[in-house]
Design a protein around this nucleic acid. Structure first.
Length: 734
RNA sequence: GCAGGCGUGGCGGAAUGGUAUACGCAACGGACUUAAAAUCCGUGGGGAGCAAUCUCGUGGGGGUUCAAGUCCCCCCGCCUGCACCA
């Protein structure tokens, strides 16, 4: 008789059995309640990391738990297989992105098998296959017809390292989210999806998602950034420069129409058309705009950048006071892509306007008096007053509260025909064009005569050329000798294919529906099957997707609904965001990072294995290749087995918090697995067996454990449910 | 600056307003062993006491309550997201 649990034998046997029997394959079964649990699918980078192991362990526990409770459980897995790393690998290793990707998928799938996951592998998908992406080309054409997709020339975030455009959501602190390079501004023709059409609906929909973490809901709310206010137009006054502005009005947006009488200047974004028109006529204005551009717009720069303005010489008249004139500046802090790209400044009641007015010696006229202040003695000296109060110095608004004054100002402006109450969103349309190879081609043909022509449905999919070269920088599809040359489907003349590919978030916006009917060749998925499985009952993944993937998928679901594919709005009923997996960091004497596997503990001291030199122990940080504080899941699975690895991951911390990976922790779990094995396999000594009283006590304990564990699992308190099991083991051994 | 979260033994963490520290890790003492590993038994917040017991203890200060880690107010520290958004 063996005295140790043999993980290799037991785990391989069961994994083989599950595979052979297709134990986790499911189909629509109306006799059972359904439960769709989904872990965010991985990018096939080549190896599983601990974050994956944690993610898939959590979804697996839920899948098996719900299954045990009698649900028909869908727990699928696939590959978010388009993306830049494949191209970088192609350049470095002289391999093809497709080959590299498919090899990685094979390796990672084998690693997942080692974890013993209850996955229905019949439903496996890879987004880089034409069988998958042909459907999103069709979606795109439908979106185009429905007015949800369009092309426009605009300033874009250009990543100079990746040589591609980035969505606003992919720019972090002014740098590319992957490359870390400062993002440049370029003007390019780009494809967009009209996510802004659903701004209000996406905002309202958040209220219908109580199963989402408060944190993510707030992040999405802030990202959408709704604000109510007034859009109105200043007339450009008669001055020498009026003609140069090439316009008669300047439109501005404000959330504080109550402060209109406190206006003391107007400021244009350096990118504003009127600024451009003035720059054409006046070199000093062109120079100033160039200066603003040189300073850049990255947050890091803006943080320290001075607020600078340039008096254009243009003036406007105040819509409520014809005799009041305001000077028009170009200012580096006014953003072209929020509101109208122009503002009026009210220095008495806005911090930024206050600073600007101090610098350029502009009037600071208080018009909103705090309720506890005396109007006669109230003055703005060191700081603006940004709160609400009673109106003063404001003609017909005098004496009103801020709220009443806002309403009255809007209504007067509407009567004057100079503006209207509006709602502004921070959210901007989703730029989906990428100048890269390893993505889904945009199914469009550009014809000199007919303009933008959609690829006819019968010609879908538009597949990627396989013989591409990565020898020169830029887009390999555009460089391809023949691929883009075609004929116009409308007039038959020579035409060119669109060489942009979709942002890879396009693929991950609908994969949750593809799993419901993964082999469908007609419409991407069958409406009835989606109706049975969707929406996802429990979605699990990292919080880093809070405003990108999760917002895009919510938009995409609405867009698909509008095009008749489905009949609901929200793709994910409940969301769980897991914490990161962390580990201590180590550095050698030369300050170089060391892998945990390269070091050795000896009492309180730590040494490098190779030469016994001392090692410095650093902070506990998120596992990352750059800091080398990673542990290879495969080694853990081979040494301790899937049960021990999964048990440790579940037991050490609550799943929403960071989990510190420790050698002693995984060993503890391994010891427990063996203890359970001994309890189950070694005969009870009859001399120690108890009587009826003992049996009754044990029965109560078992039922209590079941009840507590059920509650814990329902609430995602996995660490507690493991503790209950250990308590039960303790009770059995006593 | 705005928003959100967190703060409990040496460590990870438990605790419908009701015995604070479940469960585990590390530690210490013991058994088994030539020895070690593994395993098993036991101890375990601070202070006082041989002991029963007393006392102080959930970042700090105040409050509500018969009762506060938990609820309310103020403050400190750390983490995360957003940010010249008009």
């Amino acid at each position: 008789m063996q005295d140790r649990y043999n993980i290799k034998q037991a785990e391989t046997r069961w994994q083989q059995t599950w595979r052979d029997k297709g134990s986790f394959a499911v189909s629509e079964d109306t006799s059972k309640p359904k439960f769709y649990t989904l872990a965010m699918f991985p990018y096939p980078s080549g190896r599983l990391h601990m974050g994956h192991v944690r993610n898939y362990t959590l979804s697996d526990v839920i899948a098996r738990f719900k299954r045990a409770q009698g649900f028909n459980v869908l727990n699928p897995m696939g590959w978010d297989a388009f993306g830049l790393p494949a191209e970088n690998a192609a350049i470095e290793n002289k391999t093809h992105p497709a080959k590299w990707t498919h090899q990685n998928i094979a390796v990672m799938k084998a690693q997942m098998d080692m974890m013993g996951l209850a996955i229905d592998w019949d439903r496996e998908i890879a987004t880089c296959t034409p069988e998958y992406y042909r459907h999103e080309q069709k979606f795109f054409l439908d979106f185009l017809k429905a007015g949800l997709a369009y092309q426009k020339e605009s300033f874009v975030n250009w990543d100079p390292v990746e040589n591609t455009v980035l969505a606003n959501e992919q720019v972090v602190d002014g740098c590319g989210w992957r490359s870390g390079a400062p993002v440049e501004r370029r003007k390019l023709k780009q494809w967009f999806l009209k996510i802004t059409d659903f701004a209000d609906d996406l905002l309202a929909g958040i209220e219908t998602l109580p199963g989402w973490p408060e944190k993510v809901r707030i992040m999405q709310e802030n990202w959408i950034g709704k604000s109510q206010g007034l859009n109105f137009r200043f007339d450009i006054a008669d001055t020498a420069r009026k003609a140069d502005a090439a316009a008669t009005e300047i439109e501005v947006f404000t959330t504080r129409p109550d402060t209109l009488f406190g206006a003391s200047f107007v400021a244009l974004s350096p990118d504003h058309p009127i600024a451009a028109a003035l720059a054409d006529k006046h070199k000093e204005i062109a120079d100033f705009i160039a200066e603003c551009r040189r300073l850049g717009t990255s947050e890091a720069v803006l943080e320290t950048a001075e607020k600078i303005g340039f008096d254009t010489g243009v003036e406007v008249t105040h819509p409520f006071a014809a005799d009041k004139r305001l000077r028009v500046f170009i200012a580096n802090f006014v953003l072209m892509d929020y509101g109208t790209g122009a503002i009026f400044g009210c220095p008495a009641h806005d911090q930024r306007d206050f600073e600007f007015a101090k610098k350029y010696n502009l009037d600071i006229l208080p018009v909103v008096i705090p309720d506890d202040a005396d109007a006669a003695g109230f003055a703005i000296t060191d700081a603006p007053y940004t709160g609400a109060g009673k109106l003063h110095n404001s003609d017909f608004l005098n004496g009103m509260t801020s709220d009443d004054a806002k309403r009255e100002a809007i209504s007067r402006m509407e009567k004057l025909g100079k503006g209207q109450g509006t709602t502004q969103y921070r959210l901007r349309d989703w730029g989906i064009s990428r100048q890269r190879y390893w993505g889904c081609p945009v199914p469009i043909i550009h014809c000199d005569a007919c303009g933008i022509v959609p690829v006819p449905e019968k010609d879908l999919p538009v597949t990627l050329p396989e013989d591409v070269s990565f020898d020169q920088p830029g887009n390999p599809i555009a460089h391809h000798a023949t691929w883009k040359h075609t004929t116009c489907p409308a007039c038959g003349a020579k035409a060119e294919r669109e060489t942009d590919t979709f942002d890879t978030f396009f693929e991950s916006s609908w994969y949750q529906f593809r799993y419901c009917d993964p082999k469908n060749e007609k419409t991407g998925f069958d409406a009835d099957k989606v109706k049975y499985w969707a929406p996802v009952d429990q979605y699990i993944g990292g919080v880093e997707h809070a405003v990108m993937h999760l917002l895009y998928a919510r938009f995409f679901t609405r867009a698909l609904k509008k095009c008749g594919y489905l009949n609901f709005d929200e793709p994910f009923t409940a969301l769980f965001t897991q914490g990161m997996v962390t580990h201590e960091t180590y550095k050698d004497q030369n300050g170089k990072w060391l892998y945990p596997a390269d070091i050795e503990f000896s009492g309180n001291a730590v040494y490098k294995k190779s030469d016994n030199s001392p090692v410095t122990v650093g902070r506990i940080e998120k596992m990352s290749k750059s800091k080398k504080n990673t542990v290879d899941p495969v080694e853990i699975l081979e040494t301790y087995g899937a049960d021990a690895a999964r048990l440790f991951i579940l037991s050490d911390s609550p799943p929403e918090r960071d989990l510190e990976w420790t050698e002693s922790g995984i060993e503890g779990a391994w010891k427990y697995v063996n203890r359970v094995w001994r309890l189950a396999t070694q005969p009870v000594n009859p001399a120690q067996a108890g009587g009826k009283a003992d049996n009754d006590a044990m029965r109560r304990k078992i039922h209590k454990t079941i009840q507590e564990m059920t509650q814990d699992l329902d609430r995602f308190h996995f660490n507690k449910s493991v503790a209950r099991l250990r308590e039960l083991s303790n009770a059995i051994e006593d």
